[in-house]
Every structure is written in structure tokens, then in C-alpha cells.
Amino acid sequence: MREMSEAVAAAVDLVARADPELVEIVLLSLRVSVSAVIIAALIGIPAGAALAMFRFPGRQGLVIAVNALMGLPPVVVGLCVYLLVSRSGPLGNWGILFTAPAMIIAQTILIVPIVTALSRGVIEDLSTELSEQLRSLGVGTSRAMLTLIREARYRLVTAVLAGFGRAIAEVGAVLIVGGNIAHHTRVMTTAIALETSRGNLALALGLGLILIAVSLAINALVYLTSGIARRRAGA
């Protein structure tokens, strides 16, 4: 367990010195994963709401598929995005392989199913509860969707945070499409993988502790803010 105490020391040292490379890595991790989460929320929440509200042929199959895709292996996603944006791939002329946008795309694909599936569950419950009332008031489809999303907002926060947790913690996809390039596409998880491969287990673990702390801080921040808003709305 000597590694553990060394890891804590390494983490404390990096944070205390505000190590510029660490700051850069943490900021890039946050930018990539927060961007992916925002895009995934803009796609996944309306998609989840649509799955919750509408009945159409093949809906059940789609629900099962989305649920199953929550377990998408990051490496597979990374590989697919790589094949897409590689110079020899269909989107090769975008020239975004080994850049942050490619990492955002990969993480977005990874977490859209999570946000969609969890949103669907939350909104379906609400829809069952409220749909008669909304129809009675003469609310049209699109307004009903926006209303249900707004009504579900505090529970959707959990869905979005689940997506964020998956994005910030995954290494397989960003490693492949980002390339772990120093000062350019190196994020916390790929830095951890790199230090592990250098045998710097304490430093790797220290970075891991910082990753957990950052993730914890983000979750606490979002949870507390939404808790305050929720109490003010009496929900």
C-alpha cells in the first residue's frame, strides 16, 4: 500500500504547485467532456422525450436498442470515429483526427444512448402522469414535449450527470481519436494510462485521485445548484 500514500503525496504536490501541465490537462478534459455532455443532452433529451411520448411501430425495439447501447465499449466507439475521420475515411477532409473535436464526437456518441435512455425513463413516468391533463388543456405535441422536459428537469440532471461521469472517465475512445498528444489532446484518463505505462504508478494513481476529485466537485456543484433551484420551485 506504499503506492497509495505516494499517490496521495503526488496528487497533493501537483495540486499545490498548480502544475501548469496538470491544469492544462484538467481543463482540456473538462472542455471535451462538458462539450460532449451538452451536445448529448441537446440530442438525447428530446430523443428520450420522443421515445417516451410517441407510440409507433418499432418503438419497443428502439427502446431496447438504446438501453443496450448504454453499454457501448469506448474502444469500439473510438475505432468507428477513427475510421470516419481518418484521412482515408469519409470525413477525412475535415482534418479533425487527433484533435479535441474528434474526441468530443466520440464521447458524444458514447453518452447519447445514456442520456436518451435515462431521459426516456424519467419523461415516460411524467408523461403517464400528465398527458391527460395536457391533452385536456389542448396542448400541442411540441409544447407538450417542452413542458414535460421542463417538468422533468431536476431528474434529467441525474441523467446528464450519468453521461458526464461516463465521458470524463473513459479512456478507450479519446485515446484512439485523440492520440494522447502532449499539450494538445492529452486528457486526464490518457495521462493516467501513459503514466501507468511508464511504471509511474504513484503518479498515475495521483492523477486518478485528482480525476475523482474533479468529477466529485462537478457532481456536487450541479447537484447542489439543482437542489437549491428545486427547493425554490417546491418540486
Partner: peptide, 17 residues
């Protein structure tokens, strides 16, 4: 709420490019 999210998203993507 949606508009805020969109703005935030654009801002973040802008800093990346």
C-alpha cells in the same frame, strides 16, 4: 433553458477551435 444550453455549447466549442 434550451437557449442557455445552446449558448454554453457554442462558447465551449468555440474555445476548442
Amino acid at each position: 433553458w434550451v437557449r442557455l444550453l445552446l449558448l454554453l455549447g457554442t462558447a465551449i466549442v468555440a474555445t476548442l477551435v
